[in-house]
Amino acid sequence: MTTVTLAGTPVEVDDEGFLQKPEQWTREMGEEMARSAGIEKLTERHWQVIDFMRKTYLDTGAAPSMRALGKTSGVAIKELYELFPKGPAKLAAKIGGIPKPRGCV
């Protein structure tokens, strides 16, 4: 566990940079993390996925599976990978300030 400064605020992250306390998160931090992950500008579609991930995590205590993300976020799998080429579930979780998803699918 290390402390880094995101959007001017110190936050706790794990080795891969996932926020450990979702309540510390702000949208500005999300934008900063997106840029360091190679996504210059977060569009409405990106936010739809990020908000869905975050909401599911906060409501249920677990991030959705890739299958659930493709079926229920309103963004299909193909587009998910266009938006987040380096792994939609993983990246959207990181940008949305929740821990790394633990699921295998």
């Binding site: 299958r67 799998i77 193909k78």
Partner: peptide, 18 residues
Amino acid sequence: KIDIPPVREFIEMIADSG
């Protein structure tokens, strides 16, 4: 139950994932 899809859906999912 643990969200592992049937084979056909899994194949579609993998192809859609690139």
